[in-house]
Amino acid sequence: RKWEEIAERLREEFNINPEEAREAVEKAGGNEEEARRIVKKRL
């Protein structure tokens, strides 16, 4: 699934746990840019 690939990239890029990465992607509706913004806000 594409969402899992996005979550994996976010996890590696921001050094967050898989659960946090998945939550961000879900919140963003699968949009990678939006997920990235969500993760950055949390850091």
Rank of each mutant, 00 (worst) to 15 (best):
V25E: 00
A7P: 01
E19M: 11
G29H: 13
R11N: 04
R42W: 15
L43Y: 08
A7Y: 07
A24S: 05
R37L: 10
E23G: 07
R9C: 05
A24C: 05
P18E: 13
E5M: 07
R1D: 12
E32F: 12
N31P: 00
E20L: 14
R22V: 07
R9I: 07
N15I: 04
R42H: 15
F14D: 01
N17M: 10
R22L: 14
N15F: 08
E32Q: 06
G29K: 12
K2Y: 11
N17I: 06
E12L: 15
K40M: 15
A7E: 08
K2I: 14
E26W: 11
V39H: 02
E26V: 13
E19F: 12
K41M: 13
A21E: 00
A35F: 01
F14V: 01
G30N: 03
G29P: 00
V39T: 06
K40V: 15
E12M: 15
I38W: 07
E34S: 06
R22Y: 14
A21V: 03
E13L: 07
A28T: 05
E20M: 15
G29Y: 11
A28E: 01
E12H: 14
R9T: 06
A21H: 01
E23T: 10
L10F: 02
K2M: 14
E5S: 06
W3R: 07
E12T: 15
L10T: 01
R9N: 05
E34H: 08
R1S: 13
R42Q: 15
E34D: 08
E33S: 09
K2S: 13
E34C: 04
L10A: 00
A35L: 01
I16Q: 02
W3M: 07
E13Y: 07
R42A: 15
N17G: 13
R22Q: 10
A21N: 00
L43E: 05
A28M: 03
K2N: 13
E12I: 15
K40Y: 12
K40F: 09
V25I: 10
N17F: 08
R22S: 08
E12P: 02
I38Q: 07
W3L: 07
A24Q: 02
E32W: 14
N17W: 07
R36Q: 04
K40G: 07
E34M: 12
E12K: 15
E19Y: 10
A7T: 07
E32P: 07
E20K: 04
L43F: 11
E23C: 05
N15Q: 12
E5I: 09
R22C: 06
R22M: 14
N31G: 03
N31R: 07
G29T: 06
L43H: 06
R11G: 07
E32S: 05
K41R: 15
E26M: 13
K41V: 09
N15R: 09
I16G: 01
I16S: 02
E32K: 03
R42T: 15
N31F: 06
P18H: 13
N17Y: 08
P18Y: 13
A24N: 02
N15K: 12
I38C: 08
R9V: 05
K2V: 14
V25C: 04
N15E: 07
G30D: 02
R42G: 14
F14S: 02
W3C: 05
E12S: 14
W3K: 06
A35Y: 01
F14H: 03
V25R: 00
A28H: 02
R11A: 11
E5F: 05
L43R: 11
N31Q: 07
E26N: 11
V25Y: 03
R42I: 15
E13W: 06
E33Y: 14
N15T: 06
V25L: 10
E5T: 06
A24R: 01
I38K: 03
W3D: 05
L10P: 00
E23L: 12
N31K: 06
V39I: 15
A28G: 05
P18N: 10
R9A: 08
A24P: 00
E13Q: 07
I6N: 01
V25Q: 01
G30Q: 02
A7I: 14
E33D: 12
K27E: 15
R36S: 03
N15G: 12
A24V: 10
E23Y: 11
N17T: 15
A28L: 01
E26L: 13
N15D: 10
E33V: 10
E13D: 07
L43A: 06
A28R: 01
E26D: 08
E19G: 08
E34W: 07
E34N: 07
A21F: 02
R9E: 04
N15Y: 06
E8F: 11
V39P: 00
